[in-house]
Write a protein that binds this DNA or RNA. Structure first.
Length: 237
DNA sequence: GCGACAG
DNA sequence: ATCTTGTCGC
């Protein structure tokens, strides 16, 4: 399927990114989103397995609608700027299991705030043909001042003289996220939706849920014994 | 050459 | 990010 002609070398991966960059479309959503999902993947270095998870929520109510997960083998090593070649296949596999197709997908990584404009969120959006938003916990590139302390405060993320995203504070006094549109969405819409997905945690709810599911998948797969481990000693109760 | 570097 | 145990705080 997808991993057959998947890039095997650094050069092939970079060439694919450069051939895809012209297909990225930062256009407004066709309609207000009713279902927003979060996507995250996590790897187990020991056996090179990787687990992907997607959690779909109603929007703006933010009630969990559906979750899906997938497991596989890492198809590419981690390299700065090439994260998508590691995570797109497993996230696409999880996405295909969904019964409810989300209107927007929040992704744990950069959107267009990337050396060739093709961060994980952008690449995944192109492959799935779904609007995506990149929500990264740290910076890959670009400059911008520290946003104000209040929740919702944001500063443009500038790279090569252009605004490629926002440094966005989701919770008062907490570390901000690096937001950038992925595909089929605008920066303003991305900001609005991400803030609309924040409740009592720093991470947007759909992303937090997907992160939790991917971690549970990894534990369940790496600790077969753990599933039915011995009960706690009496003296612990 | 030096510093930076999503997950 | 991963590898790890307990531990401090709401």
């Amino acid at each position: 399927m997808l991993s057959q002609d998947w890039p095997q070398t650094y050069q092939e991966a970079v060439a694919l990114q450069e051939s895809l960059r012209g297909q990225v479309r930062l256009i407004p959503l066709s309609r207000p989103p009713r279902f927003v999902a979060g996507a995250d993947a996590i790897a187990a270095r020991a056996d090179r397995r990787i687990f992907g998870a997607i959690a779909v929520y109603s929007y703006p109510e933010l009630e969990l609608v559906e979750e899906a997960g997938a497991a596989g083998v890492c198809p590419f090593p981690y390299r700065t700027g090439l994260l998508s070649f590691r995570e797109v296949p497993i996230l696409a596999a999880a996405f295909e299991k969904l019964k409810q197709r989300p209107d927007v997908l929040l992704v744990d990584g950069q959107g267009i705030a990337h050396p060739r404009g093709l961060g994980l969120a952008t690449h995944l959006g192109l492959v799935l043909e779904v609007p995506t938003i990149g929500v990264a916990k740290s910076r890959l590139l670009g400059n911008g001042e520290e946003p104000g302390r209040d929740a919702g405060a944001a500063i443009p993320l500038i790279w090569q003289g252009k605004v490629v995203g926002l440094i966005l504070r989701t919770q008062t006094g907490k570390k901000p996220f690096y937001l950038s549109p992925g595909h089929l969405i605008t920066l303003a819409e991305s900001r609005e939706i991400v803030m609309g997905c924040v409740r009592r945690y720093r991470s947007p709810i759909p992303l937090r849920q997907a992160d939790g599911l991917s971690r549970r998948l990894r534990s369940a797969a790496s600790d077969p014994e753990e599933t039915r481990r011995a009960p706690a000693p009496d003296k612990w109760r």
